[in-house]
Design a protein around this nucleic acid. Structure first.
Lengths: 221, 221, 221, 221
DNA sequence: AATGAATGAGATTTCATTCAT
DNA sequence: CATGAATGAAATCTCATTCAT
């Protein structure tokens, strides 16, 4: 007789405004308490709804967590796709992507916390629709980097995937530090440093063995 | 997050061998199940001791978690400190550090999992003794980078902290990917790619700063 | 067991057709899921009405359950009362009752499930109007059995209540088996077996010790 | 990472006495409140242990329920098997089984409640080990009935399975009535009524096969 | 008359942790 | 030293039920 129906992970958006309220509350609480420590009760209180109401909109605590990035990342990627074509040159595009990436986290510190401290460590997130969008936004980098190679702006021997890992890793490292230590107060300011370092490397130009050309002017006798 | 009275965080190492067994078991279990999902019972079973015995050696589940990196990171850093002086040139030292860093995670995949997916998201880890060692190992990078500036191997205008973030972030990004997706099968192989990119940047050589041409006009007698 | 204020147990039959639809749906769901496991939501879906509508017709889940037998048993008993007078002889009447009893469950397997697996275990059902009708239908048996005693068809020393318990128990046992195990595929076919066994007992006739009467004819001297 | 181990439904009998205490408490509470209405908390209070302790011994509320009949039915059946061989004649054996059956419930009214009102309606019970024993005890009846046919004590045309259904159903009907209505105060007293009715039927003796009268005419000398 | 939306009210279950032996 | 046994303390999640529209 027992017969659990496999709960539909898609709840009807009865009242989209309330869903958004709950999501914001969840983001706030998760960002401060972590996933396990945060309770549905905390979130319900913050959102000023009953706990049961949360379950009307999200079928589990984890689904609630995973729903947090969905909209923001979607919007982020759409805007990227919209603007990129207007930017000239792969290097400029790359700088733009880096800036956007940093701004995303700078403008949404709670979101940054949730992503860096909670979602990144949760393998189930990989199965999420939101993660699909993350992947698609990662492709931006690859496309721009390949464009730069074609246009001769970037070294042809570089591996776009490695470069992306470098950028992505750098950004996430900075964001995580900010989340945990508050240290790099401002993130977007670092856009140029990051870009320039990546673009030029750290080798001192002087290091490039200067060509010493000794020209001996000899007076012809 | 939860922050109970910190108890005697130093338990008598009654039987160091058993402590090590427990730690290995914990690493194994945590790596596979995550912190919350893993149970003391799981770990006890794996270590073939009773749950109560675990509490003889570690005063809480979280302390057990934090104890995992202690030894490995200590040993890692000591070896770094030991070898570094024998390496000539900041660039070579930097390459060495990157290699060691990648090897650390490559050689200890369970440890990598624990660090990337669990510890990084736990703010309490920052208060840990082990984290102190992590910080000290982070200083290696700064020292080497500063040495490189002094020795004119690296650009004087670069920010060592930013460069370190770049390297560190890149490495952790790669390691996390490997933990979650298994993707970069081999990590240490990437040492040179990472180093070279960082060293030379991605700008095509054609656009590199113009050669310095020193013209010495010598009057021939 | 739980016994909340009994509310207005008589709801206005706003739309009798809809009430019937809901009842059929409830019977279907309860029969398959049991009382606790079945949800109002399940029933609402099956009946294609909203959950709130169910509460327009039935004031609680339990009242809904108890409403299921009401009509069917009423109709069953009315028909019994109607036909019985036309049957000649207590034995024939008894056979008729058994047949009807078996047919009731055979023709309504969902109803059989609900009665055997759910209602029988619920003490609150005894306070129900429907149970009153069950009792009155039980009286049929008593009346017929007593008639049989009077008419000398049945042993005068038998206890009608015990006999009824025997019949009733036998039938319910068979029906329950069918509900749970599907085993006696056909129920009404068993009417005669049941009746004959009851009527004749299981003692072999040969077993009745033959009376040996020795008659000595003596010639008077 | 999530990885629920499929709980072993066999818990170590750490302390058999405590397990028995819990079982008795559960029987008591379930008998009075029904399965759903009874709470683990109720049972824990009655057994004077914590709720968690109950879960040390039984892995779920339902398993706790199913554990109730295990021992009692086992013991019941063992005793039956032990005594049966000493009884002479199928009829006597049958009377014995009926008596034992009634006594089982008479002597354990809480147990009777649990079986009649709760277990009988739970299809999962059929998958239970205890149910296996019930089945084996049901086989007693069949064996005795078949023996009676062979020995010519019982009619050869009777269906043992039907007869068993009759007895079993009758008994359960009486026990259920007693559980719900308290009505047949005494159960074992009914043994003979039940047996005799079954044995002789309810047909009036007048209609029974005519007596055999042997008349020996002897000529006196 | 019908229902979408909201929630009150708990119960089961899980573990980390303790303590007496 | 080691551990078997016991439990305190919550948290998630489920539904029957209500009410405003």
């Amino acid at each position: 007789m027992k017969n659990k129906t496999p709960k539909s992970s898609q709840k009807n958006p009865k009242n989209p405004k309330k869903a958004a309220t709950i999501l914001k509350a969840a983001e706030h609480i998760f960002a401060r308490k972590g996933f396990q420590t945060a309770t549905i009760s905390d979130i319900a209180k913050k959102a000023k709804v009953s706990e049961a109401t949360i379950y009307e909109y999200f079928s589990s605590k984890e689904e609630l967590l995973f729903a947090i990035p969905a909209e923001i990342i979607q919007h982020y990627q759409e805007k990227n796709r919209e603007i990129l074509p207007y930017i000239h040159g792969a290097a400029n595009k790359l700088r733009f992507l880096i800036h956007r990436h940093l701004a995303l986290y700078e403008d949404n510190p709670d979101y940054a916390n949730v992503v860096m401290l909670i979602l990144k460590g949760n393998p189930n997130f990989l199965k999420t629709e939101a993660y699909r969008v993350v992947q698609s936004s990662a492709r931006n980098y690859i496309e721009v980097l390949e464009e730069g190679i074609k246009s001769n702006e970037f070294r042809p021997d570089m591996d776009p995937y490695m470069i992306r890992a470098m950028i992505w890793g750098n950004i996430e490292h900075l964001v995580t530090r900010k989340s945990l230590l508050g240290k790099p107060e401002n993130l977007t300011n670092l856009t140029d440093t990051l870009f320039n370092t990546l673009f030029n490397g750290i080798r001192t130009t002087a290091e490039q063995p200067p060509l010493n050309i000794n020209v001996h002017l000899t007076r012809s006798e």
